[in-house]
Amino acid sequence: MRFLLIILRGIGQVMFQNNIYSGVLFLVGIFFNSWLLGLAALSGTLISTCSALILRYPKEDVKNGLYGFNGALTGIAIFCFFEVSLTTILALIIGAVLSSIIMYYLKKITLPFTAPFVIATWILAYLLLFVFKVPLLSTSVSTSNTLDILASFSNSFGQVMFQENMITGLFFLLAILVNNRLMAIYAVYAAILGSLTGWLFLESVSEVNAGLMGYNAILCAIALTGKSWKDFLWISIAIILSTLLNIGMGLTGLITLTAPFVLAAWGILMLKKVKNSL
């Protein structure tokens, strides 16, 4: 039972919610959209958590799910981009283990956020593509020319875990709300501002509606949540910065994942530290 609670916390920590009920709601949302990606999330969390236990990483961190969420994201990403096969299953296992190892060492230097997931997934995805010649899954692209605020808002929440589904997005928002109302309010603000920023910078409406301009913004808002007006200003800057980074990195052809969030959050924390030292 205790191990199950650790797994649920690990899934909840994808959006920095150390709450088993958040973890349950995230899981329900993923399974609502895709049973395969739901299994991938569970598998990634289990493997990365067990890896941390075997490697004897700090028990309190493991207990709080800090060695589960990057594995969950890595697991989802592998089966989101590639078909299920023996090769991709092995990639999921290796990626989840690697995410825990990167988490442990990166944590000694800075706040890792989802950087372990990004690094592990980049390594495995590009190995699968260019070394093992595993093709990417084909995806259908919407050709909508009309901005749909509701769709972009809800899908932004879903896209944090690669789910383009409005109902799933609402489950994710509820998962944040049950743990922290202020974070939920900031997440709503981020989803809207991030989507509008992408639209104003002439990103395709289909990408905005799919939530691809809002999910990094949501993570920035949650990670930097605070109660002062200064926090509001920093969060607003981070939201816009992460969206612009998302657009810029996308132009290079790179699989952006949550790298724009990580870079924006690190940048804002560094600026805050410099400002406070003056």
Rank of each mutant, 00 (worst) to 15 (best):
L5I: 13
I6Q: 12
L8H: 03
R9M: 12
R9Q: 14
G10H: 10
I11F: 07
Q13A: 10
V14I: 15
V14S: 14
S22T: 14
V24T: 03
L25T: 04
G29C: 08
I30D: 02
F32M: 06
F32K: 04
L36G: 00
L36C: 01
L42T: 08
T45L: 09
S48L: 08
S51L: 10
R56M: 06
E60S: 10
K63F: 13
K63L: 13
K63W: 09
N64W: 10
G65K: 04
G65F: 08
G65Y: 04
G68K: 06
G68P: 04
F69V: 01
G71S: 11
G75C: 04
I76N: 00
I78S: 00
S85D: 05
I89V: 14
L92M: 09
V97F: 08
S100T: 04
Y105W: 15
K107S: 14
T110S: 06
L111I: 15
F113N: 10
I119V: 14
T121G: 01
I123R: 03
Y126I: 01
F130M: 12
N145G: 15
L147M: 06
L147R: 08
L147F: 14
A151I: 03
S152I: 13
M166N: 10
I167F: 05
G169L: 05
F171C: 02
A175I: 07
N179D: 10
M183H: 06
Y186L: 13
V188W: 09
A190R: 01
A191Q: 05
T197N: 05
W199A: 12
L200N: 00
G211H: 09
M213S: 13
I218H: 11
K227P: 08
W229Q: 05
A238L: 11
L251W: 11
G253L: 11
L257H: 08
P260V: 10
F261M: 14
A264G: 07
W266V: 10
W266R: 11
V274A: 13
K275L: 13
K275G: 03
N276Q: 14
